[in-house]
Simulated assay, not measured.
Amino acid sequence: MGPFDWLPHAPLESLQLDWLNGVELAVLRLDRIDPLISGNKWFKLTEHLALAQAAGASGIISLGGAHSNHLHALAAAGKRFGFPTVGLLRGHPQDTPTVLDLKAFGMQLHWLGYGGYRARHDVGFWLPWREQYPHLYPVPEGGGGIAGALGCGVLVEQARAQLSSVGWADYDAWWLAAGTGTTLAGLALAEAGAHPVYGATAVPDDHGVAQNVRALVQDGYELLDASRGGFARVDPLLLEFIEATEQASSVLLEPLYTGKALLALKQQVEAGRFAPGTRLIFVHTGGLQGRRGFAT
């Protein structure tokens, strides 16, 4: 099982925006690696797939919500590369655009309700699912854990190999959204202190991002709150910022992660956090399929 020879390429592109005030910004476009298996989710899955193969599993079982980018990428990968997938979903049955895709990709779905989903960290949570699907390998929510982080380390290599395409010899730091903190931890591990990694948290403190990251890496990063009051909390300022950014560039954003992260960067630049001439790599973590959940 597993497309272990498929390593998609994420292009590095300059991004010119009025508010940068002399700060140089390049975007690592994970949203452009593939039409369906998009964003950071594939990189987080690669090491999990290798572990699944080593364990003799034939497929993957994992968790997420009704708009989950992780489950969307997993189901699309399962369909394309021919391995079974099962999704354990938060809440009660609903046909969001994402859920309709999961079904079309052949993922078998189980709805856990909200209480059942909250139990996902309990000891013994996986036991009945392993009994029901003994041939499937369990992957944490969002593709997290050390395996997910290690899979993201290749992003540092990809960005460094393309610095000349944006006219840079080096860079000063990374900036990206943090949902579970797995990708951030992977970058910090790969950097090993060479360049700091800034994570704009898309969820409040009680979602445990700081704890997740500390369990994987001890230093080389900083977390800043970009949640705007809650996960999936969207306000007029954020939507106006996304619209203005898309009008000024070719980069599409979504309001849960990339939009919040880039708006937080704007606020930090305006506060004088980064001096003119600072070179930042912004990781576009994909997730554009989730925009459909906000369509009017």
Rank of each mutant, 00 (worst) to 15 (best):
K41C: 05
A210L: 14
A159S: 14
A26N: 03
G148S: 02
L36N: 10
L263T: 05
C152K: 00
R279T: 09
P97T: 03
W6A: 03
A77V: 00
A232F: 06
D18H: 13
A173E: 03
I60G: 12
T182M: 10
G179D: 09
F105M: 10
L163C: 11
H72F: 14
A178T: 12
V139Q: 12
K44C: 03
L25I: 09
G293V: 10
Y137C: 06
S68V: 06
G293K: 10
R273H: 11
A248N: 02
G56Y: 07
Y117H: 11
S164P: 04
E254F: 05
L252G: 01
P8D: 11
F241E: 06
L36Q: 14
G113P: 09
L36A: 12
P196S: 13
Q16P: 00
G39E: 08
A173W: 01
G143V: 08
G208F: 06
R273Q: 14
H92V: 14
R160W: 00
Y114G: 02
T245P: 01
P128Q: 03
E157Q: 12
N69V: 04
T182P: 09
Q162A: 12
G39T: 04
L252V: 01
F125P: 06
H48P: 07
H92E: 15
G145A: 05
Y114N: 14
A177R: 00
A178G: 07
E131T: 00
V269S: 13
V217C: 14
F282W: 13
A173M: 10
K260A: 10
F81S: 09
I37D: 08
P138K: 01
L163T: 06
L112Q: 04
H284A: 06
I60Q: 12
E222P: 00
D235T: 04
S250I: 00
H135W: 07
P35T: 04
E254D: 10
S14E: 11
G87S: 07
R273T: 14
D34W: 01
I146N: 06
A52T: 02
L239E: 14
L150F: 00
G272N: 10
E47V: 02
F231Q: 05
R228P: 05
E24G: 06
G286D: 08
G272I: 07
L252K: 04
D225S: 12
A66H: 01
R90W: 09
G167A: 11
P204G: 13
V139T: 07
R32F: 08
E24A: 13
L223A: 06
P236C: 01
A210I: 03
L136K: 01
K44N: 03
D170E: 15
A271C: 12
V166M: 14
R228Y: 13
G199C: 12
T296W: 11
P140T: 01
E254N: 03
E141F: 05
D18F: 03
P196C: 13
S62K: 08
Y117F: 15
F231N: 05
L256F: 02
P97V: 04
P255E: 11
D235H: 13
L288D: 12
Q94P: 00
G145Q: 02
Q158I: 03
L109V: 04
Q218D: 15
W126A: 01
D206V: 04
F81D: 14
K260Y: 10
A200W: 07
L28A: 12
L20F: 10
G259M: 11
L163G: 09
V203E: 09
A261C: 10
L102P: 12
N212A: 13
G2R: 09
L189D: 00
R292P: 01
L51S: 08
